[in-house]
Amino acid sequence: MAVLVYAEHDNAELKKATLSTITAASQLGGEVHVLVAGTGCEPVAQQATKVVGVSKVICVDNAAYGHQLAENVALLINDLAGNYSHIIAPSTSNGKNVMPRVAALLDVSMISDIIKVIDSNTFERTIYAGNAIATVKTSEEKVLLTVRATGFDAAAAEGGSATMEKLDDVQDAGKSTFVSEELATSDRPELTSAEIVVSGGRALANGENFTKYIEPLADKLGAAIGASRAAVDAGYVPNDMQVGQTGKIVAPTLYIAAGISGAIQHLAGMKDSKVIVAINSDPEAPIANVADYFLEGDLFTVLPELTSKL
């Protein structure tokens, strides 16, 4: 039987997390099909047909799916489920919202946030904020998973030639409606797929200091900007910048943490980065335990110096 990947996109672009999920899907055995549900989402479906490893793309273009309301999308996936041994999605906020709902409709358990495929029924995932790794085996006939993008390389976006099927399956559960959204816009790379991330913590003291000290360094490095929970809670930066157990999981080539203590919940979101730099005035800060390079100092003098010398 085949594997169904529920694609993450914004009706214009297939998101990179989908490519990592397709890699995970191709390790499960069987053909890989991709479901693109949305409004005006055909360009995304076209992109998905080119991804290496995908044999079929199912495009469902309807207003009911424009905002990926879980109540509607879950019914759609439930309709398609019969043909698949595995149904998987990226562990994005959307994948996390929809997939458990599908699992319950199918009366099966689900495995969240896998970081490794051992075999088609056995997976590794982190528990306790990354303090432990569990190997989980499932005997469900239908295996539902979400995939942590940092655990899998992205499948090649070009070179494939999948077929496309347009499907007309309108499911409106009538339980929810989209009201509004406030999406962050930025010219910087996206946090979860950036090569370099510069993050700031409580020590920044206010939002203006993010602009004054973190942004110039990020600009110089072409980096995305992240933050600790403390910085988000205090309103220095919006919630979509939070890195950690309950924020975004990142694993860039270079992660620079300025004025972040390194609480376990923060480490859970970034300790798989290739190189970690910490700038902290406290040499005992726990971030020192994971930092490859630790520079003790006041970020208000270190960051401008670093920015100007790069």
Binding site: V108, S109, I111, T122, T126, I127, G130, N131, A132, I133, A134, T135, V136, K137, T138, S139, E140, K271, I276, P283, A288, N289, V290, A291, D292, Y293, F294, L295, E296, V302, E305, L306, K309
Partner: peptide, 24 residues
């Protein structure tokens, strides 16, 4: 549950890093 935890292991440890003395 149809799920079973086969084993739980500690995460891989990061190799110890170094302190650097200056921005340079």
């Amino acid at each position: 549950s149809k799920q079973q935890i086969l084993k739980v292991t500690p995460p891989p440890e990061r190799a110890a890093g170094i302190k650097v003395a200056s921005v340079d």
